[in-house]
Amino acid sequence: MSFLEIRGVGMRFGGLQALDDVSFRVERGSVVGLIGPNGSGKTTLMNVISGVYKPTAGSVTFADKTIANVPTHQVCRLGIARTFQIVKPFASLTVRENVAVGAMYGRDGAKRTTAQAFDHASELLEIVSLARVADRPASDLTIPDRKRLEVAKALALDPDVLLLDEVMAGLNASEVDEALALLRSLSERGVTLIVVEHLMKAIMAVSTTIVVLAEGKKIAEGAPLEVTQSRAVIEAYLGARYVKRQEAARAVADARAAEGAR
């Protein structure tokens, strides 16, 4: 049995099929890049894996448990943590208090006193470069800092699997490099990552496997280079007409080259 398995997952919102028969396995310690155009169902899949939504078809299993049967607040105790793409800070609490809540109620939370939870939160704020605003209310944070806070809150749960939904949006180039270094170090510590990101450079740099969604369906899965060169993926991203035009252009160029060689 595999570590984390997504099996035939479907999610329907009224008339909209946001996910349709999506299946893949996530191996322990891997870094799965989950990509796809806007509205392709990436966030919905994160919500299903983290138990926030119950799928209307199929199942997600982790540690011999079907996530849909586990209350949302217990999913993190199994070892799955996630960030929210639309950030959800506890606005009136300080940044440190935000993270401390995770340290109090997450996987090892029962073992921590309030003071220990605050200490753990402080350590995590160092890691995500938020120590400088630790005592400010979360409502004061900029968008990139709010994304960092999401990551720190998820880390406070001591996860085995971390789902990151567009946490690099809005970061500048050097901040992206910092974030990538953080992901690598988490991965080296054995945390399994599922990363949604639009920045291809970032996805290519960290992923061991890439899964591509388009209109709720899985259209490709494999090693990064292989997947990004697949015709289906390029079509999904850039449109079928773009692919045809590219192919026509290449045919013309090839013909010219052939002519030139003659």
Partner: peptide
């Protein structure tokens, strides 16, 4: 802190356990 987390965002609170 659990009560305030619920007040501020119940979904985020649930995900934090």
């Amino acid at each position: 802190y659990a009560l305030v987390a619920i007040r501020e965002n119940e979904d985020a609170a649930a995900v934090l356990g």
